[in-house]
Design a protein around this nucleic acid. Structure first.
Length: 602
RNA sequence: GCCUAUGUAGCUCAGUGGUAGAGCGCUUUCUUGGUAAGAAAGAGGUCAUGGGUUCAAUCCCCAUCAUAGGCUCCA
């Protein structure tokens, strides 16, 4: 299917034009405002302003109303080519625009900060109604093409944004808008946002009792409650076994290490700002472990290695601590203490490609077992303009080409992106799209020639000469916290049975049936099924309702009939009624669904 | 870290310049009910924290902390 690039669509023009209309209305409300840029984005547009005071809700409502009025005026968007001098004259009181003009005329960057090929000798203006903007277009012909009831600028609070995305420069006020061709599409979009809010893992996690973040413990330091911990443990045990089956060796390392360890690894100067301050004890300094790699390298180095020992695959669910900036913390997806499903593979150069391919296959297996099928691969390479990377060009070439070759051999569609590499090597990331089509970076595989060098890792080859191994870093989940956060949102709390914290809830019809319910639950537990009895007060209808709201996959209603026949009456969280079945049949049913990691409960 | 907003019971949220309320949840009692909320009573709050204004502050002002939406960042 051929698709038209976004830049050429009508929707793009509508959104771009609305950005200009918003700027016009804003200048009426705030005549002293300085205007920066206002591009279309996914789902809408924004415009950045420097304002004397921040706009209130009333201001935004006024502006939105005024925008509808401007649209109703049926104004033309008039394009005009101008010389740099004319442009400067027009925007004499708009310093941001003057800077943009300078950058265009001097052939530096365009309004989005992208490098441009040649200096611009002419610039273009677009004018609608009483507003003229420096802009390359395209726009709608007239405001008639815009449906005044298909956009909103009050759907989202105003935001702060740095001029040119540079944190050392001025902070502007950004107003976001969303815009569509029809009011129905707008409603649909707002509805989707509402849905996303409802499945927010912070909300669902609280409601289902999975985890809690308490400020007395510290920001970004989640506490796993019993129901969350059992999920996490289930995932961890499964992945650990999968890894053991694939030749990985579990290891365990401490939560702190001497500062010198990270100086040796080279991590310390690079990530100084995002680490907890070192702990001083006697004459030594320790760091809360920000990554597991150095510890694993020391395990490698603790013995003389032969080429026969390689690949050596060291795996650890290693908890690390990173001092993320406070504004970046977010529920479970961005935290300060988290557990990486980490492994480091030490391989000979000739094993690199095969091992890399095996790692990717393992990650694919892990994702597909969880029913996560919608993901893409991204190859992150160096940003040629940055000097933050270590290692020789030759090693970078080698590593990059190994990754690209692996992608080709695996037939893995991938996109190469500059500047996405780690400081020590290129990487392959798996970007997952959840049920709401939002993208999340999950698994990552990285090739590293740097750490083996820094730790002087060696093995003895066939000719009895010492060689340097290559290292592969990999984490299919990324981190347990982030991964579970994403699973919560993807499944909206309705986990497949094998992951559900409570798999079966026994609901006695009356409390005279509690004994039987307890007896059946004990039997289920014997077979490894996570079963609970709701022996509390209240009617069974209420208990069914509560179980539904907790998304418990199986409800077993038991009363006189079931006691008489030795059955359970099974109701699914999908409201489907499986009717009465013997306890033995139910156990084998649940065990099959759990063993298959099936998405369906039937 | 920066911009903006918010902070009242375990949760969701009303409310007021004269020291507080609802629903859900929790406890107890009554109800023993076959597939989405039975009834009643009770417990529970230094109104985020610290200052200031005031005869009087949960409410107004300032600071701090936390949270949210963004920006920047993300080994």
């Amino acid at each position: 299917m051929m698709s038209v690039p976004y830049e050429e669509t009508q929707l793009y023009k509508i959104r771009h034009s609305l950005a200009h209309i918003m700027a016009e209305a804003m200048l009426e409300r705030f005549p002293d405002a300085q205007i920066a840029i206002g591009p279309p984005i996914e789902d809408g547009f924004y415009y950045d302003f420097l304002l004397p005071q921040s706009p209130s809700e009333e201001d935004l409502k006024w502006v939105e109303k005024r925008m509808k009025k401007i649209i109703g005026g049926n104004h033309e968007f008039v394009r005009k080519e101008v010389s740099p001098e004319e442009a400067r004259a027009q925007f004499g009181k708009q310093p941001f625009k003057l800077e943009l003009i300078d950058d265009l005329v001097n052939g530096r960057v365009n309004e989005m900060g992208e490098e441009i090929a040649a200096p611009a000798s002419t610039l273009t203006f677009y004018t609608q109604s009483k507003f003229t903007d420096l802009c390359r277009g395209p726009h709608v012909k007239t405001t008639k093409e815009i449906n005044p009831d298909a956009f909103s600028i009050t759907y989202k609070p105003i935001a702060g944004a740095y001029w040119r995305g540079d944190e050392t420069r001025q902070q502007l006020t950004r107003i976001y808008g969303t815009a569509w061709e029809t009011p129905e599409e707008l409603q649909d979009y707002l509805h989707r946002l509402e849905e996303a809010r409802k499945r927010d893992h912070r909300v669902v996690g609280e409601r289902l009792g999975l985890f809690v973040i308490d400020q007395l413990v510290g920001k970004g330091l989640p506490l796993w409650k019993p129901k969350g911990a059992i999920m996490r443990d289930t995932l961890e045990r499964w992945l650990r076994q999968v890894q053991i089956d694939n030749g990985y060796s579990p290891v365990v390392t401490p939560h702190i290490g001497k500062l010198d360890l990270y100086k040796t690894s080279g991590h310390y100067p690079y990530y100084k700002d995002s680490q907890y301050t070192p702990i001083q004890v006697d004459d030594e300094e320790f760091l809360l472990k920000p990554m597991n790699c150095p510890h694993h390298c020391m395990i490698y180095r603790s013995e003389m290695r032969s080429y026969r020992d390689l690949p050596l695959r060291l795996a650890e669910f290693g908890t690390v601590y990173r001092y993320e900036q406070s504004g970046e913390l977010h529920g479970l997806t961005r935290v300060r203490g988290f557990t990486v499903d980490d492994a480091h593979l030490y391989v000979t150069p000739s094993q690199l490609l095969d091992e890399f391919i095996n790692v990717v296959k393992l990650i694919q297996y892990v994702f597909s077992s969880l029913g996560l099928t919608d993901f893409r691969a991204r190859v992150g390479i160096r940003d040629p303009k940055s000097d933050k990377y270590v290692g020789s060009d030759q090693l970078w070439e080698q590593a990059t080409s190994a990754i690209l070759t692996a992608c080709q051999q695996l037939n893995l569609p991938h996109k190469v992106e500059e500047g996405e590499a780690a400081f020590y090597g290129p990487k392959l990331d798996f970007i997952f799209r959840d049920a709401l089509k939002r993208e999340w970076q999950l698994g990552t595989v990285q090739v590293d020639y740097n750490l083996p060098q820094r730790f002087e890792l060696e093995y003895v080859d066939e000719n009895n000469s010492r060689q340097r191994p290559v290292m592969i870093h990999r984490a299919p989940f990324g981190s347990m916290e982030r991964f579970i956060g994403i699973l919560i949102e993807h499944f909206a709390g309705e986990f497949p049975a094998w992951l559900a914290p409570v798999q079966v809830l026994m609901i006695p019809v009356a409390d005279t049936h509690n004994d039987y319910a307890n007896q059946v639950a004990a039997e289920l537990k014997k077979y490894g099924i996570r079963a609970q009895v709701d022996a509390g007060k209240g009617r069974m209808q209420k208990k069914i309702r509560d179980a539904r709201e907790e998304y418990i996959p199986y409800m077993c209603i038991v009363g006189d009939r079931d006691i008489e026949n030795g059955t359970v009456s099974v109701r699914l969280r999908t409201d489907e009624d499986l009717g009465a079945m013997s306890v033995a049949d139910f156990i084998s049913h649940v065990n099959r669904v759990v063993a298959d990691k099936a998405m369906e409960l039937k």
